[in-house]
Computed example of a mutant assay.
Amino acid sequence: MKQIAIDSLRPTQATHGRIEVVKKAKDYARLAGRKLQMAIAEKPIPIVLGPGGEAFAIDHHHVAAALWAAGIKMVPVVLVADLSSLDDAPFWLTLENRSWTWPYDARGRRIVFGAMPRHVYELEDDPYRSLAGLVREAGGYEKTTVPLEEFRWADLFRTTMSAPPAIEEDFDAAVRRGVEIAKSRSAIGLPGFLGDKSGA
């Protein structure tokens, strides 16, 4: 499987959930030798080639950032599409049309594509993205194959509850509230919804 340097990997989103990155980094740091190599191989980063032949990650940003935080410099990748013949504007528009980019900051505001971070370890922390992951782990909704699903849930929580705390140890109350919201009528239509689908 082809590997590339993590610091050459371009992100296609502006934020991540730092709690998830820290947790994954600790998991990688506990491993060594073959176990570490197997864990890394389990989650290759899907990429597209963009202008200038640069590799852009279209998923698993948390994995790449966690590997970097754990001191790992190379990551396996899987090529999904070669869009290197496109100029910047049509390239980013193609990514957006295919749901391969999320150009929004930690406040949920749209940003221009030129303002996207250059490296996966430069992504802005969005506590609501961390909350979305923790709510899913707590059974609030199911993981699906819908692209960018966690960001859609993060946006729901952003509009329905106050900002979650900065550290995971203080997240319990926010997660409980998030699960309630995830199973309520306000979440109908989101990927992985587990509540009353009838809307009654």
Rank of each mutant, 00 (worst) to 15 (best):
P51W: 08
G108K: 10
A39M: 08
A66Y: 09
V112H: 11
V80D: 12
L49W: 05
L83V: 01
H16G: 12
L36H: 06
I40W: 00
E124D: 13
D27G: 10
A81S: 14
A55V: 06
L131R: 06
P117R: 04
W92R: 08
F56G: 00
K35W: 03
D105P: 08
G52M: 04
P103C: 12
V78K: 15
A89T: 14
S130T: 08
H62K: 14
G33T: 08
D87F: 05
G50S: 05
I72Q: 07
G50E: 07
S99P: 00
A81V: 01
V21F: 05
M116D: 03
A65I: 03
G17M: 09
V77H: 03
K24L: 15
W92Q: 04
T94G: 01
R30H: 11
A66P: 05
R109Q: 15
I45A: 02
V48E: 08
L86T: 03
V120L: 09
Q37I: 03
P90G: 09
F56M: 02
A115V: 00
V78S: 13
H62P: 00
K73E: 13
M116K: 04
F56T: 01
E54Q: 13
E42C: 01
D88N: 10
P44Q: 10
A81H: 12
H16V: 01
A81I: 00
D59F: 06
Q37H: 13
R107L: 14
L131K: 06
R129D: 11
D88T: 08
V75G: 02
W100T: 02
L86P: 00
L79F: 02
R110L: 13
A66W: 10
V78R: 15
G53A: 11
R107I: 00
K23Q: 14
A29G: 04
L79E: 14
L67G: 07
D125Q: 03
A115M: 12
R129Y: 08
A89H: 09
G114Y: 03
K26F: 05
I40L: 10
W102T: 09
L36N: 03
Y28Q: 06
A14W: 00
V112D: 15
L67T: 05
R109K: 15
V80F: 09
L36I: 07
P127N: 04
A106H: 13
L93T: 11
L86R: 11
W102H: 12
P90A: 12
E20N: 12
V22D: 15
M74L: 10
E124Y: 00
R118D: 12
I40K: 05
K43P: 00
R30N: 15
R98Q: 13
W92K: 04
L79S: 06
W92T: 05
A89G: 03
K23N: 10
Y28E: 06
L131P: 03
V120T: 10
G50L: 09
T101I: 12
A32Y: 01
H16T: 13
I45C: 04
F113W: 14
F56H: 15
R118H: 11
D82G: 08
Y121M: 11
V21A: 07
W100R: 12
V77F: 05
F91H: 10
R107C: 07
E20C: 02
P46Y: 08
V48A: 04
A32Q: 12
G33P: 02
L95Q: 05
